[in-house]
Nucleic acid binder design. Structure first.
Lengths: 295, 295
DNA sequence: GTTCCGCATGAATCGATAG
DNA sequence: ACTATCGATTCATGCGGAA
């Protein structure tokens, strides 16, 4: 089975209109934060942010499958000593547009931007807002299970008396049931906080998020051969991860330099792939053994 | 120096009206989440939450000093597969009321409660929303500095020769100056993510947050002898922390059992110190107590 | 080969200065 | 007054060269 990776040069507000409806399993993207990347993306003013984004999210709602998921990586910046409210306003507006606001994951950044100010600390977290078309969507939780950490061990060690007691006394109790399940388990489900470092040492393409971020959500919300889209592709982290993991993907990028860079990588990769015998080794379909580190 | 701890039995919506304006340095509280503790607090319906809270936050705005801070610990619950929007709506409404939304800290819970659901993971973070009366407020950042990471250690060890030289040669240089500052520094500033465990060992009253949480903000936003208030006292974690740290505090609680429990602790604490002067009655107002120990 | 160490590099934010 | 630009601040990370 061949994996398609379509890299498109253009403004996603226009490009998305040409895509058919109900074809995408996962949208994972990080649009330019309001006024943030002025030199590269043109910097949307905070007051115009919602109006700018809503037409795009409307198209995204159209192309997403009913069982699909939209993960939006965003963080409001500080203006005049206050956090801007455009993210909250965007969530409220998107709900009116028909989106379900299912969850908000947190990306806890290990290495946040340095600096010191008299009235605030460094910002070391970003939002990963999960939208869906309904309460029912595909989620493959077991694909992102992580090794049992220190917490579960000590909890089992210390509380096992009480918990086992509870397990016996209350048969229907979900808690007791869980504990007995854990006893023979070496992996646990993660939480809604992802603790990752940013990749800030890459000189050529400054990726805004580490590849582990899209990888995690691709594993969680798609299966091999599903389709992922990133309408604000940037350096192509989402698409390259999709490709490695055997997912088809679409990337839309408004700046030619970024577009060209990603295209070149994909094309070089194609050449490697079509050498005999190498075809499937690099897709890494079931090679999903890395883990998100948790403290 | 005496430290006062006033524990008041009543509904904060009414009690707060009787407090004078501009007297409080820090408000730290965790109101009952919408519809969450139905049996104990009466469970505010999510749709009514903002309307219920706004009169209270209006009084809080009145009693807070211009340099003071309001930290609101809250998290929206899931209803019908979606996160409720009342927290976002509350922030927007409180801004209209005159509050500055300065920052949103994250409490990243190390050990979140176990459980499994088909379409979401365990929720292991809560919001700590910081409001102020203006851009200018008291913040004692050095009080919450934390041990340094790897970088500064190696840097100080290895580069001190070169840097000291540079320090001598270039007097006005910011770099040289910084290095000399670093030489005696083994601590760095924290970020806006607090990574703390929940307290699961409290058997009598289930505290909603660990004592480290109010402690951190009390250190950050108040000095000894300042005044802290928790209008939804619960098991009194905020007030007991304030008391230990030499801050005056006020706690308001609508449920008699909680009120009584905290009062008993405070009184017992006081008896230890001033046994002959047992003069307090059960009225609760102006219940003066004495400081036990400093940080 | 390892380990060690210097270094550049950030979705940042504030206050001052300039137009 | 109001916006635009600039310098200063700060620290975790991974690369590459050195020991």
């Amino acid at each position: 089975m061949r994996v398609k990776t379509d890299i498109i040069f253009g403004d996603c507000a226009e490009v998305l209109c040409h895509l058919p409806e109900n074809v995408v399993d996962l949208i994972f993207t990080s649009p330019s934060y309001a006024d943030q990347r002025k030199k590269t993306y043109g910097g949307i003013h905070p007051d115009k942010y919602v109006d700018w984004f809503l037409p795009i999210s409307k198209e995204l709602l159209r192309i997403l499958k009913p069982t699909g998921t939209f993960i939006l990586n965003i963080k409001e910046r500080v203006i005049n000593g206050e956090r801007s409210t455009y993210v909250m306003e965007l969530i409220l507006a998107m709900r009116k547009q028909g989106w379900f606001w299912t969850e908000e994951f947190i990306w806890h950044k290990k290495n946040s931007y340095p600096g010191k100010w008299p009235n605030r600390f460094r910002d070391s977290w970003e939002r990963l807002i999960q939208f869906n078309k309904s309460k029912k969507f595909n989620m493959y939780q077991e694909k992102v299970m992580i090794p049992v950490g220190g917490w579960a061990k000590t909890r089992l060690k210390n509380l096992s008396d009480v918990d086992k007691l509870r397990d016996k006394s209350k048969v229907g109790s979900g808690f007791g049931k869980n504990v007995s399940n854990w006893l023979n388990r070496d992996k646990v489900y993660p939480t809604n906080v992802l603790h990752l470092a940013t990749e800030c040492n890459n000189k050529n393409h400054s990726a805004t998020f580490p590849k582990e971020l899209p990888e995690w959500f691709i594993k969680l919300f798609t299966r091999p051969n599903d389709t992922v889209i990133d309408p604000f592709m940037g350096s192509g982290t989402t698409n390259l991860a999709s490709r490695r993991m055997g997912r088809n993907s679409i990337g839309i990028e408004i700046l030619y330099d970024y577009y060209k860079g990603v295209r070149d990588q994909i094309e070089a990769d194609e050449l490697v792939l079509f050498e005999p015998e190498k075809k499937y080794e690099t897709t890494g379909l079931n090679n999903e053994c890395y883990r998100v580190r948790r403290e």
